[in-house]
Amino acid sequence: MTKLPYLPETPSQTAGPYVHIGLTPNALGNAGIYPQDLGISPIRDGAKGERITIRGTVTDGAGMILRDALIETWQADAEGLYPAPNEARGQADPNVTGWARVIADFDSGQWTLNTIKPGSVPHTSGGTMAPHISLWVVARGVNIGLQTRIYFEDELAANKKCPILARIEHKDRMRTLLAKKTGNGEYWFEVKLQGEDETIFFDL
């Protein structure tokens, strides 16, 4: 057998039904191990930008709402800078951590993300990505974490120019990536794992 010129990535396995034991033990009720869960908010007091609340659900192909889903979110600050050690363009807002873990409510399955609306981010090969929040969704029955993005339906002009949205062949599916505005600073976003109106998932 010839040796590969690279090491293969460690293969994924499902997060299973008990992912909260490991990633959000305090939210589960297993307090006492860590003072607080990681990723409790993507922002701190004083974060610049428009405060928004996004609510939603994760549903399966049978239309059932998942109560065991865990979503991680990653976003830029209001200027479009990432609060990351490898952000080369400048210093992001110190009150934006950019990363959060949001879990489906154990009873209703609804999740809530309180954050600021991110700015546009340049695309490496030209163009500008419209304001978006990257999502990574895991749950029992999900064999490899699913990547998707929340875009905003009220960012029409920016969405039209986004090079990632431009890659979507079936334009009628694009709406599955748009958070619906339900009020002042309030949005609704459903992740549909399968079936009609299945959310667009990325391999980026």
Partner: peptide, 20 residues
């Protein structure tokens, strides 16, 4: 019932995936 049935939309990574 939890597997997406459509193909993933594939593209090179962007700053959104390259940062953390």
């Amino acid at each position: 019932t939890r597997a997406p049935s459509r193909a993933l939309v594939a593209a090179p990574s962007t700053l959104s995936e390259e940062t953390g």
